[in-house]
Simulated assay, not measured.
Amino acid sequence: METDGMEPDLSQVLHSSNLNRAFARPDILNTEFMYFSAVLKVVAPAVSTDDNRQKVVPWIHKLFRPEYHSTPFREKRNKYLLYLTLTLLNDEVYGIFSLPPPDGALPELGEINMGHVTAADWELDLTWQETLQNLPQDFKQLECSVHENIEECDDDHFLDTILDQEFQFLLYLAKPYAAMLKGRYDATKVATWMQTLCTIHGNSCSSMKGIRNDYMMALLGYVHDLRLIGPFAEYPPWRTLPPLAEAAKLAADNRPITDPTGPEASAFLSSMPKPSDGAFCYIAITGDLVKSSFGPAP
């Protein structure tokens, strides 16, 4: 919508189909459409250049028209919305969206020349490859902790590509934060963990690659806060890598957060103000039942 020369109100356009959706039977295509509507409401007005914002508006008008809520066109509509959302998340408008939408029917996306899109920085990062090249010659790959025999591992490679891409991205994100860790021991541990996770590659099964990514995602969260706790407080295992949930439970059992000698307690106490006179007393409270040395209550 346009009013007196002002910029189109994208929020009104994106909400224009609420009545049509209100009485529709819930389904996957409708759920996708609602998701893209919510995302576009945020990212479309946030595009950095005015020229690109003006290019987006006619496309939103087009894709939210009533005819694209009819059954034959909903899937095509959602594909266009997905493509548009991805371009805007990169703060760009390229491909077919750099031109005004056609007055008639939209072409099938498969018929459109998408043009050349350069690879992202994380796709070109060589950290993973360089880590593998620098492994010692006598290095032995971790054993699978999921399957009981090699045949089951050989049959489990359906998700290799997407899992490897995810790991490459997470590794790229974690690298600068890992370099900021101040403690010498923490820096050594995180480097060892990243090296160990990098070794799960190639012929490793998809299940192990999924476990690898779970660890990498958790490690990224910790190094982002510039600390190493949980399973990462110790060096990685050298034989096999158990699921993250098992490793986290084992780490909590071995050194719970209430342990006054543990790293969590030390980090907490070191961040507290030092009293100029007297002393502070800290009490660790746990939900675990503690057996009394005085026997059961009368």
Rank of each mutant, 00 (worst) to 15 (best):
213 N>A: 11
274 K>E: 13
158 F>W: 04
286 T>Q: 09
239 R>K: 12
251 A>N: 04
142 L>D: 03
48 S>G: 11
13 V>K: 08
174 A>P: 03
88 L>T: 07
106 L>E: 04
11 S>M: 03
22 A>W: 00
122 W>F: 09
219 L>M: 04
219 L>H: 06
278 G>W: 04
227 R>F: 12
288 D>Q: 14
144 C>W: 01
71 T>E: 08
251 A>I: 01
88 L>S: 15
187 A>K: 13
229 I>V: 12
1 M>V: 06
244 L>T: 10
59 W>N: 10
48 S>C: 10
177 Y>I: 08
110 G>H: 05
280 F>P: 14
18 N>V: 11
81 L>I: 08
213 N>E: 06
293 S>R: 08
163 L>G: 05
54 Q>K: 15
34 M>H: 06
66 P>A: 06
72 P>W: 01
67 E>D: 11
67 E>Y: 05
245 A>S: 14
6 M>R: 11
72 P>K: 12
124 L>V: 01
285 I>C: 15
152 E>R: 12
24 A>M: 01
244 L>A: 04
30 N>S: 12
77 R>E: 03
57 V>L: 15
75 E>S: 15
285 I>F: 11
298 P>C: 03
46 A>P: 02
237 P>R: 13
23 F>K: 14
158 F>Q: 10
155 D>P: 06
263 P>Q: 00
162 I>P: 00
244 L>Q: 03
98 S>I: 06
285 I>V: 14
215 Y>I: 07
285 I>M: 14
205 C>T: 03
36 F>R: 12
288 D>T: 12
125 D>E: 04
284 A>K: 09
256 P>H: 06
267 A>H: 11
262 G>H: 07
185 Y>A: 12
234 E>H: 15
263 P>I: 02
120 A>N: 13
208 M>L: 01
29 L>Y: 01
76 K>P: 01
237 P>T: 14
64 F>Q: 01
219 L>P: 01
